[in-house]
Amino acid sequence: MLGNLIHNYEEAVALLLFSIGFVTLLFHRNMIRKLIGMNIMDSGIYLFLASLGYIYDRRAPIVEDGITDPSKYVNPVPASLVLTGIVVSVSVTAVMLALAVRLYERYHTLNLDEIYELSRRRTEHR
């Protein structure tokens, strides 16, 4: 069990990062911290994908020196998935930052509990 964990240390670290990010996103009350949590969570997934695609002693998947034997190169798909994922998480981060700015302008705090309380007092929920 421990042997497996040490052998697959990259995946283990990736899942640890994912869990840290997940818990931060779920439980922190501060919008910016939530956002950082989301980015850690996504980075965990990208690390997981990258380590999944890497095969020891093989080259990056760009044909060089006329070598066309696919067994000399690593799998390019996980890298492209990571790139797509990064684009997605950048867009989500931008939207969340915009939301945070708007919340701050309206309530002058980034703590969601306080914002909720302020909003309740202003009877905005009708």
Binding site: G21, K34, D42, F48, L112, S119
Partner: peptide, 25 residues
């Protein structure tokens, strides 16, 4: 309350997306 509602909506949605993406991987 639209902005606050959107923030809460996004947080839960992002948690869901994270789990889904990990599942896909």
């Amino acid at each position: 309350r639209t902005t606050l509602a959107a923030a809460r909506y996004m947080v839960l949605n992002l948690l869901g997306s994270g789990l889904f993406l990990l599942g896909v991987c």
